[in-house]
Design a protein around this nucleic acid. Structure first.
Lengths: 127, 127
DNA sequence: GCTGGAGCTTCCAACAGTGGGAAGGTCAAT
DNA sequence: ATTGACCTTCCCACTGTTGGAAGCTCCAGC
């Protein structure tokens, strides 16, 4: 129902994300609507790259009916900045890799500017 | 000289990346030019996001004087694709977070479209 | 010489998230 | 009653990096 694997559900529960599910007489977990909702919530937040700790905070805000939406927005803003920074460094990496690949013939000869770049000293000002 | 922490040097050595450094009479590692070169190589490759296993392959190619540059280029190409894919998913995440943030007032009231989105079912076609 | 501090050595643990597997219990269908 | 597919808990692996502890060594100051 949530699309989360049994394994991961147990992990989320032990990590304090998920409200522990009730147990049947045989000890099996009995998930209610709240659990399913939380799991979808967690899955969505993970998809957006939120780390576990942040998701705990988000869930606490969700559970608090009197939360100020300001706090939710602040968490989203932090996350956005994190992802933007990562994307920028990815952008740089792609630029460098593209440049290196263009400089390398990629044939049967051993000469390779990529390997030379990797070992060269002091060229890498920024990246 | 390489800019790699002592800790990480030992890890790289144990992981089979770095040619094991010679030892002095007291058991201390005695790094030579080759070690320093390899460490700079590793550092550069890590900066570009290459995982350890790929770096091992790259170092093996570097050590092989008769390597075909084709192989080096192929590894760089794979890595480029990996980073491009990551960047694209980051791009999507940023779009979603930006949209969510714009939809949330971010004041003292509890209403928050971000939380509502996280728990809603079936809306997340792609992201 | 003796002591302190800063290096070195090793091993063990932790982080974030998953996945993999073992060992045992339970349930439903055959 | 047996089989297969679940459930339960546990521990381990992985990515790369950092942290600590315990013990040794080196050098500088006194």
């Amino acid at each position: 129902m949530s699309g989360v694997s049994a394994r991961l559900i147990r992990f989320y529960e032990s990590a304090g994300l998920l409200t522990p599910a009730g147990r049947d007489a045989n000890g099996y977990r009995d998930f209610d609507d709240r659990n399913v909702y939380e799991l979808r919530f967690i899955k969505r937040a993970r998809t957006l790259g939120f780390p576990i700790k942040q998701i705990i905070e988000l869930l606490n805000l969700w559970r608090d009916k009197k939360r100020p939406s300001r706090k939710v927005r602040a968490l989203a803003e932090i996350q956005r900045k994190v992802i933007v920074m990562r994307m920028e460094s990815h952008r740089e990496i792609i630029d460098v890799l593209t440049r290196l690949m263009n400089s390398c013939q990629g044939d049967d000869r051993p000469e390779c500017p990529i390997l030379e770049d990797f070992g060269s000293k002091g060229i890498h000002r920024k990246l």
